[in-house]
Computed example of a mutant assay.
Amino acid sequence: MKIRALLTAVALTAAVPAVAQEGAAATPPPAEKKTPPKGQTAKALVKDSQGKDVGEITFEQTKHGVLIKGTLSNLPPGEHAFHVHEVGKCEAPAFTTAGGHFNPTKKAHGLLAPKGKHHGDLPNLYVGQDGKVQFDTFSQNGLTVKSMFDKDGSAVVIHAKEDDYHTDPTGDAGGRIACGVVEKS
């Protein structure tokens, strides 16, 4: 729980300058709803090691980072690591074909690591006793929708255990229990 509070504090601290700047304007600009430019959204249809549908994760590029949303089910209850991996390939049952975490800058793993983090490092998922989780998270660590479509693509992987946010290279997250190839939407 302390890690969740710390991550929330970090995210809010990063957002404060933008909020302060917006409040400084004498007259706020009119709110505009813009559709993201073509090529700025992606999705991953996630399957478990038996090939059963687990759900969908979407990625939307914004001015300040990538908004990541998901609705997943049929997962084991508890806390699970969730990462973007470097290869767009999800061969069951172990999903090792997805490679390591998406890490083009060759940093250490972990949201709490002094020499981290990977672009693919994301907060843990908290799956309920019913095996379901719905989430919205935001990545401001260099990940972009465009970067996920390099020569071999990318995948999103759900791990068996929680990410400890500092052990290199995987956060001691255990095996891979679900995977989805990131595709343009």
Score class of each variant (00 low, 15 high):
1 M>W: 06
3 I>M: 12
4 R>C: 07
5 A>I: 05
8 T>R: 14
12 L>T: 02
12 L>F: 08
13 T>Q: 09
14 A>Q: 02
16 V>R: 08
17 P>D: 02
20 A>V: 13
24 A>C: 06
25 A>V: 14
40 Q>T: 12
41 T>D: 07
42 A>M: 05
44 A>T: 13
47 K>Q: 15
47 K>I: 12
48 D>A: 11
52 K>M: 08
58 T>G: 01
60 E>I: 05
61 Q>C: 01
64 H>Q: 10
69 K>E: 15
71 T>M: 07
72 L>G: 11
73 S>A: 15
73 S>F: 02
76 P>E: 11
84 V>K: 03
84 V>A: 06
87 V>A: 04
90 C>K: 08
92 A>M: 07
93 P>L: 04
94 A>L: 09
96 T>Q: 09
97 T>N: 02
102 F>T: 03
104 P>Q: 07
104 P>G: 06
107 K>T: 11
112 L>H: 03
115 K>G: 09
117 K>M: 11
119 H>K: 05
124 N>D: 15
124 N>K: 07
128 G>Q: 13
131 G>R: 13
134 Q>W: 00
135 F>Q: 00
136 D>I: 01
139 S>A: 12
140 Q>C: 04
145 V>G: 01
146 K>I: 02
151 K>P: 01
157 V>D: 00
158 I>L: 15
163 D>V: 01
166 H>E: 13
166 H>K: 15
168 D>V: 01
168 D>S: 04
170 T>H: 03
171 G>P: 10
173 A>K: 03
176 R>H: 14
177 I>F: 09
181 V>E: 00
183 E>F: 01
